[in-house]
């Protein structure tokens, strides 16, 4: 079977949902005729028409506000906020309008709205085009945050996000767009809020999301050659968090490492550690996180590479905590 590229998975999900439900519309900056700055959404306007797929001005607040108003009036809008860093411009509409409407209206109308956004570092985009906006949004009840790591999940989770009645922030890691992987079944729709155990192991549980999952899997392969058997959990949805899957794994492995691309302070990794500490303290021999430093993301390649979690830094951190030594270590 032909492999599916991550960016095509996103486009296919949009294409299929636009075809399935005429209430779905898609708009954003340069998404329609130009096909998106990350070449994700080409051809959708031709296939579904300019009434349903259209370009907007550079007005993140208006885009989000229009999506909110449309979502409570019979449409199911998907918007693109080009870079995750630009989400902050749309914050009032997302946090104060979309996320709270179902509640304050006493469930008079839901807000079936999806915000797609390209996030993450590693592309030399610098401090203000590389951020991971999760901490800003994870404290907002009423929003879901989806963070896929594979093409198959990107498609199945985006389809689920579009069908969800809540506002959903759908994060696409820029370093994953060119990733190829196995496609899912035709028409597959995932369930939001479910993590996947993507590698089984018995010595420790490593939890991550998006690009971090691939770094962790690479680290786990290396660790396996050194006699350490890591279980890897791909969270897939960061809000709501699938605590049960993490807890079940930690109860077997007794160690938890969380790898988050994002600042240590206020990050979601801290929330995972807190959940596990509260609910499974007696099972824990160790629990820690590997994050970025509490600093803006640097531009220069050696600086940015050193700043981000990587397979190497994950392996090193595991050895440090397990008091083991890497193979071939001169230390």
């Amino acid at each position: 079977m032909a492999e599916l590229e991550f960016r095509d998975a996103v486009r296919d999900a949009l294409d299929e949902e636009l075809a399935r439900d005429e209430a779905v519309v898609f708009f954003g900056e340069d998404v329609a005729r130009p096909g998106g700055v990350f070449a994700v959404t080409g051809g959708l306007q031709e296939r579904h028409g300019s009434m349903r797929v259209f370009d907007t001005p550079i007005s993140e607040l208006a885009i989000a506000g229009a999506a909110f108003g449309a979502a409570i009036s019979g449409l199911r809008p998907v918007i693109e906020i080009m870079f995750g860093d630009f989400l902050f411009l749309a914050m009032d509409s997302l946090a104060n309008q979309a996320a709270k409407y179902w509640f304050v209206s006493r469930e008079q109308a839901s807000v079936p709205l999806v915000v797609r956004s390209a996030v993450g570092a590693g592309g030399r985009f610098g401090a203000i085009h590389s951020q991971m906006p999760v901490p800003w949004f994870q404290g907002i009840p009423g929003l879901k945050i989806v963070a896929p790591s594979t093409p198959r999940d990107a498609k199945a989770l985006l389809k689920a996000a579009i069908r969800d009645e809540n506002p959903v922030l759908f994060l696409e890691h820029k370093r994953l767009y060119a990733l190829k992987g196995e496609p899912g079944d035709d028409g597959e729709v995932a369930q939001l809020g479910r993590a996947n155990v993507v590698r089984t192991g018995s010595d420790l549980t490593i939890v991550s999301a998006m690009k971090g999952v691939h770094d962790v899997l690479a680290a786990a392969e290396q660790l396996a050659t050194e006699g350490i058997d890591a279980e890897v959990v791909d969270l897939r949805t960061l809000r709501p968090l699938d605590r049960d899957t993490v807890l079940e794994s930690v109860r077997r492995t007794n160690r938890l490492m969380v790898v988050e691309e994002g600042p240590r302070t206020g990050g979601w990794a801290g929330g995972v550690l807190a959940d596990v500490t509260e609910d499974a303290l007696e099972y824990l021999d160790d629990a820690w996180r590997l994050t970025t430093a509490d600093a803006p993301i640097p531009y220069s390649p050696p600086l940015e590479d050193a700043f981000l979690p990587s397979a190497e830094s994950i392996v090193a951190s595991v050895h440090e905590h397990l008091n083991t030594r890497p193979v071939n270590s001169s230390a």
Partner: peptide, 12 residues
């Protein structure tokens, strides 16, 4: 906020 909401309602 009212302006944003109405822009979206009108869009729908």
């Amino acid at each position: 906020g009212s302006i944003a909401a109405v822009t979206g309602v009108a869009l729908a």
